[in-house]
Design a protein around this nucleic acid. Structure first.
Lengths: 212, 212, 212, 212
DNA sequence: TATGAATGAGGATTCATTCAT
DNA sequence: TATGAATGAATCCTCATTCAT
C-alpha cells in the first residue's frame, strides 16, 4: 500500500503531501476537492489516484504521516523524566505552540481529523487513534511526582486544574496566532506568561506556597 | 420571511426543526443534505423549499431559533447579580451541562455553527454574532467582585485559571455525556465535583484560604 | 370548458386575464410562472386551476380571447370597401400602431404566441391559426383596385413593395413605442410620416405619378 | 477559458456545437435543457460542464462562435465598395438567404439570441453586440451614393423603402425555406425575383427611370 | 367554491473515480 | 508511469399540479 507513492522522489512526495495538507487543513474531508489538491501539487488527476487509490486512502495516509511526524517531534523533544508537572506542562505547552507555528497545516489537519465525523472515514480515524493510544505515549501526568502538591487538596483535581490552565492558555494563544507573526518576541511572551501561571500555581497548589 | 413555516402546526414545526438540527449538528453546512433532512422530517423535498427558500435560509433560521432558545434558557436562569465568580461559574457550568443534555442537537449545532467556515453563510453568522454580543449578554467576568481574590496574585490571571478550570471540567463531562443517561445521579455528581473544585479554588486563590 | 371561469364577475375575469396577459407577454410559455400570475391576479393557486384546468388551458383560452378582441377591433375598424391599397394600408398601419398602444400586453402576447415553439402548445396554436385563417379575414390585398398601379410594373410585386414599406414602418415605430408615451403628438407624427410614404409611392408606383 | 473544449478533436467540437445550436435555436435560453444537448451530442452530462463551466458559458461561447462564422462569411463576401444601394442590397439579401440555408441553426440561434431577454445573459449579449457594432461592420447604407436617387423624393425615405423591400422579400423566402430544399433552382429563383424588384425600384426611385 | 400547503419529477451543477492514450 | 477527458450519481432548487380543509 502506498508503495507507488513511496517510490517517488522525496521532493515530489513532500510537494504532494504539503498540497494535500494545505487543502485538508482548510476544508473538511468531504468538501476538500481532489482537483484543488492536484492543482496545488502540480500533478495530474490520474497521478493522484495512481499513487493513492482513493481520496480516503490519501486522507488516511496523511493522518498516519502527520501523526508520526508530530508525535516524533513532540515526544522526541519532551523530557519525560521531568517529574514536576509544572515543568513538564511548561515544556508541552511551549512545544505545542511552537509546532503550531512550525507545522500549521499538520496541526490544523490533525485537529480537524480528530473531530471529523464523515462516515466514510470516522471509523478508520477512531481505530488509528486507539492504536496510537495503545502505543502508550506517556500521558501528561504519567510518572508525575505528586508529593509536591498541597496535602489538603485532592491530587487528581489539582492536576486537572493545572492541566486545564495550560490548555486554556495554549488555546487562547493559538487563536491569536492566526493574526500575528511568530517571532522571538512572541516566544518570549509565551515563556514569560507561562512562567507567571507557573508561579501562581506553585504559590497556591504546592506545599510551602505562600499563605493567601 | 419564514411566514409560511410559522403558519404550520407547532408539532410539525418542531418535527422539521428537530430533523434539521439533527442533520446540521452532525454534518457541516455543505455536507448536510437536504434529502436527509426531509427524510428525517417526513416531508417532501418541495415542502422544505416552500417553507424556507433555500438551504441557507433554513440554516440561518435554525441559528436564530437555537440562539434564542439557548440564550433565553441560559440567561433566564443565571443570576447576574451574583458577584462571586465561583458561584457564578458554578451556575454557568451546571446550566451548560444541563442544556447539553436537554438540547444536545441545539448545543452541537451552535458549536458547529460558531466555527462554520463556509463562505455562503460565514458572513451572516458573524453578523448575527455581533448582534448577539451587542445585546450585551454579560460576560462571565462582568461585574465580578475581585476583592476576594488573593492580593499576591494577578487578578486577571486568577480569573483565567478559574474559568479554564470550569471550562475544562465542562468539556470533560460533555464528552462523557454521550454514553450516559442524564439523571438525578449524574446531576448530583456534577454538583459534588464542581463543589470540590470550588472548595480547592477558594482555598488556594481566595484571601484567607488555608495555608498550603 | 372554461364555464367556471365565465361564471365569475366580469371585473374578476378581467383582473385575471390582465394578470395572465402581463406575465405571458413578458415570458415564454414555459418560463411564465403560475405563481406570478396568481399573485398579480390576487387569487389563490387553487383558484387558477379551478377555473382553468391547467396552464396550457389558460394559455389557449387567452389566445382565443386575445384573437377575438384584436380581430374584432381590427376588422371592425377597417373599411374593407376601400379599394385603394394605399388608403387601406394607411388605415391598417395606424390601427396596428394604435392597438399596440391600447393593448400592449395583448399585442405582445399575440406576437409571442405566434412564434411560440413549446411542444406542449405549438400544435394547438397552429391549429387555431388555421381556423382563424379559414374564417377568411380579408387579406390586405383582397378586393384591391390594381388598375391604379403603373402598367410597366408587375402588380403583385408592386403590392409587395407597398406592403413591406408599411410593415417596415410599423416595426420601426413599434420598437420606439416602448420608450415614448403615446399621445396626440405621436399619432400626428405617424399620420404625417405615413402620408409621406404614401405620397412617394403614389408618385412612383401609380399611374400618372411624376416622372423621376 | 474554453481551453478544455478547444483541445478536443475538431469533429467532436463540431458535433457538440451542432447539438447545442440545434437545441438553442429551437428553445429559449432557459427552456433549453442541457440533458437534451448532451443526448444530442452523444456526450455525458459531466463532459459538457467539463468543457464549459456552465450553461451560460456554453451559450456565450456559441454566441461568439456563431457571430464570428457569420460575420466572416457575410462581410467576407460583401463588396463594400459597391456604392449603389440596389447592388449592395442584392448581395446582402442573397447572402443572407444562402446563409439561412447553409447554417440554419446558426441563423436561428443568432436571431433568438438577439431578442433573448433572460436576465442571466441579456447583459452579456448586449455587451457583445456593442463590441461587434464598435468593430464597425458597415451598415447597409454606409457610403451609399444617393446621387442616383430621384430628386423629388426624400433620400432617407427612399432608402427605407428599398431596405424594407429587400427585408420583406428575405423574410418571405425564409419562411418558405423550411419546406423546400435549397438547390440551384431555388437560388436562381431568388436571383431572378430579386432582380425583378431591383428593376422596379430602379424604374421608380432612380433618376431617369421611366415615367409611370 | 376557494385556499395554500404539499408533492415529485426535472433541471443545472459538482466531483470522486475510471480509462484510453 | 502519467495524463486529463469522460462518467454519472448526488446535490440544491423550481414549479405545475393536486388535495385536504
Amino acid at each position: 500500500m502506498f508503495s507507488k507513492f513511496l517510490k517517488l522522489k522525496p521532493e515530489k512526495q513532500e510537494q504532494i503531501i504539503n498540497a494535500a495538507l494545505k487543502v485538508f487543513s482548510r476544508e473538511s474531508y468531504k468538501q476538500a476537492s481532489t482537483d484543488e489538491i492536484v492543482n496545488a501539487a502540480g500533478i495530474s488527476k490520474g497521478a493522484l489516484f495512481h499513487y493513492f487509490r482513493s481520496k480516503k486512502d490519501l486522507y488516511l495516509f496523511l493522518y498516519d504521516y502527520v501523526t508520526k511526524v508530530l508525535t516524533d517531534e513532540y515526544f522526541g523533544s519532551i523530557d519525560l523524566s521531568e517529574r514536576d508537572i509544572l515543568l513538564r506542562l511548561q515544556q508541552m505547552c511551549l512545544l505545542k505552540l511552537s509546532l503550531l507555528k512550525k507545522h500549521p497545516d499538520m496541526m490544523n489537519f490533525a485537529a480537524k481529523a480528530f473531530v471529523e465525523e464523515d462516515d466514510e472515514i470516522k471509523g478508520n480515524i477512531m481505530e488509528k487513534n486507539k492504536e496510537i493510544t495503545a502505543k502508550g505515549y506517556s500521558n501528561f501526568q504519567d510518572n508525575i511526582d505528586t508529593s509536591k502538591l498541597r496535602e489538603d487538596v485532592d491530587d487528581q483535581m489539582a492536576l486537572n486544574i493545572i492541566r486545564w490552565t495550560f490548555e486554556g492558555y495554549a488555546n487562547k494563544e493559538q487563536a491569536a496566532l492566526r493574526n500575528h507573526p511568530m517571532d522571538e518576541v512572541l516566544f518570549d511572551k509565551w515563556i514569560s506568561e507561562i512562567n507567571g501561571y507557573i508561579e501562581i500555581i506553585r504559590k497556591c497548589l504546592y506545599k510551602g506556597g505562600n499563605e493567601p
